[in-house]
Amino acid sequence: MNDPAARPGAAAGEELVRLASADNFRDVAGPGLRTADGVPLRAGVLYRSNELGLTDEDAATIAGLGVRAVYDLRDRHEVEAHPDVEVPGAANEHLEVRGIPMDQVASLATVQQADDVMHRVYRGFVEHPGGRAAFAALLGRLADGTEPQLFHCTAGKDRTGWAAALVLHVAGVAWAEIERDYLRTNDRSAGTRRKYLGMVREHLGEELVEVYERVMVADAAYLATAHDAALAAHGSLEGYLREGLGLSTTELDRLRARLV
């Protein structure tokens, strides 16, 4: 099934697909996302998510969307602790990117410390060789795909958020719209965030709720840190994609053609 418009879920609209066991699962094309010159993105092609601790019903739903490849951006320890539930008919590939360091999170005492950790994480997406290799591999796989694909990390906001931002940039979406879409995680995952902050309140105290919330939210300033690091190192996002990730014009054109 090579015509994206004919794929399951492409015409229905991603807002109709809400998974009980993966609340940040969504179509990369997003509701209302268009290129800077007004062309709507093609839905039903690429999906993004938080970790896939799926119920059988939700796994079947993803399979029903035609997803045939799942790319897991979590680090080895995250994968071992919470392995993906298999999506029937989909191959799973691990492309490791360093996420939020839990040893540093455990010792957080102030909002500033939490913000500092998150900015280091986002700079690392651009500056760390392993991260660049993983994001390069991911975008290359997405460009080469002919059927729907899914990529995810743990919360579906940081590593997945940067990857989705790059894909949308390649598709020609304006940065302001990319930022708006990135922030949708805060609405999609509000229930999960409230649950974990309730645990912080119960076990660590009210004074640390605001601190830990900083590592649980998508913040435009975090995304800007990765964006600015790419510009500082390569002059532009195009330079980062071509020089930093080593993607060819052909690969970028193929990726763009999948969504536009």
Rank of each mutant, 00 (worst) to 15 (best):
G156Y: 08
P40W: 06
H203V: 14
G246M: 03
L183T: 04
S21F: 11
E207C: 09
R76W: 09
I178V: 15
G30T: 01
E14R: 14
R214T: 02
P129V: 05
R68G: 04
A232L: 10
G53I: 12
A171D: 04
A6C: 12
H234L: 00
D187M: 10
A109H: 12
A81D: 12
V121S: 07
V111H: 11
T185S: 07
V209D: 05
G246N: 01
N186L: 09
H119Q: 14
Y182T: 03
P8T: 00
S189F: 14
E251S: 11
G205Q: 09
N24F: 04
R98S: 12
L252I: 00
A143S: 07
H152Y: 00
G124N: 05
R76V: 13
R193M: 14
Q113V: 09
E177M: 09
S107M: 13
K157S: 00
V17E: 06
F135N: 03
G172Y: 11
D103A: 13
E207F: 14
V126Y: 14
G13R: 05
A6H: 15
L237V: 03
R214P: 06
R242G: 03
H234P: 02
V17R: 10
L237H: 06
L247K: 02
L168G: 01
E15H: 00
S107I: 10
A114Y: 13
L168S: 03
E179H: 01
Y182V: 01
V121Y: 08
D72S: 04
T250F: 14
A6P: 10
L41C: 04
Q112K: 10
E51V: 10
S248E: 00
F125Q: 05
S107Y: 07
G191N: 05
A165S: 14
L33W: 06
A20E: 14
A29G: 02
G32F: 08
V200Y: 07
G130C: 05
A163T: 02
A22I: 04
R141N: 13
R18F: 04
G246S: 01
G38S: 09
D37A: 06
G191T: 06
I62V: 11
S21K: 15
E213I: 09
A36I: 12
P88S: 11
A171H: 08
Q112D: 15
A226C: 04
D27L: 00
A171F: 03
H128Q: 14
D27Q: 00
G161A: 00
L255I: 08
S248R: 04
G64T: 06
S248H: 01
L197A: 08
L46E: 04
P148M: 07
L197G: 07
N92W: 14
H128W: 15
R258H: 11
G99R: 06
H94K: 10
G64Y: 02
R188H: 13
H169Q: 10
T250M: 15
R256M: 05
A220R: 13
T185N: 01
L166S: 00
R42S: 13
G131L: 11
V17D: 09
A164C: 08
D58A: 09
A114C: 07
G13C: 01
L247T: 03
A36Q: 13
V215H: 02
A43Q: 10
V121H: 08
Q104Y: 11
T192E: 12
A22V: 01
A163S: 09
Q149A: 14
D116N: 15
G53Q: 15
L52Y: 03
R194D: 10
A218K: 02
H82Q: 12
V260E: 10
P40R: 01
A109Y: 13
